[in-house]
């Protein structure tokens, strides 16, 4: 099922490259990368957020959705093929869904703010920024948990350890014979 993961990674990176090119060719706006603050030197302002996203908002959303998919595909690549059990693949899929949901929540609440100009607060930050701050960081915790809690199931099993030790021994014996 995950044997062709490298082709997925290749396809995702290629798509991201195409999106980047499309963004590069899109109509630009003066405040796309920010403007100097009118009052305080050294500070940059973003000004009209809706205008900045007008031509590239959808592309940027797709770019990051692909990036999150790439992250999960790379994590799968990092696990030996023989340990990519259905349980592992489901856990990875759940991680991806969580990360994509957080990204969607951040993006949509930001869009909502751009429409209404109003936002609530969560733990000190406006809600879209709280999704970014706390959500993005916590969104990858399932990946960390899979690595840490599943270490002896997916990453480096006792059988792997025995196999590696046997390989080390063989190599040492060969070296001694030489």
């Amino acid at each position: 099922m995950t044997r062709g993961i490298i082709y997925w990674i290749f396809a995702i990176c290629s798509l991201m490259g195409i999106i980047l090119l499309a963004i590069g060719l899109a109509e630009t706006v003066p405040n796309a990368g920010g403007l100097p603050h009118p009052e305080f030197p050294g500070m940059v302002v973003g000004e009209d957020g809706a205008a900045r996203l007008e031509h590239i908002g959808g592309l940027a959303f797709a770019f990051n959705a692909l990036l999150l998919t790439l992250v999960v595909c790379l994590a799968i690549l990092g696990v030996s093929e023989r340990h990519r059990s259905p349980k592992f693949v489901v856990a990875m899929a759940v991680s991806l869904v969580i990360m994509l949901l957080i990204w969607w929540a951040m993006f949509s609440t930001h869009q909502e703010f751009l429409r209404t100009g109003e936002t609530g607060y969560f733990m000190g930050f406006p809600i879209p920024t709280a999704w970014q701050m706390y959500g993005t960081w916590l969104g990858a915790i399932p990946l960390v948990a899979i690595y840490t809690l599943g270490f002896r199931h997916f990453i480096f099993t006792e059988a792997d350890e025995a196999e590696f030790n046997a390989l080390l021994k063989e190599c040492q014996q060969e070296e001694n014979q030489d």
Binding site: A32, G33, G46, E47, R52, G57, F63, H110, T129
Partner: peptide, 16 residues
């Protein structure tokens, strides 16, 4: 002062 500076993509914008 500048809502974009405090929103998720900050003053530098979404692609940065």
């Amino acid at each position: 002062d500048d809502s974009e500076a405090m929103m998720p993509f900050g003053a530098a914008g979404v692609m940065a």
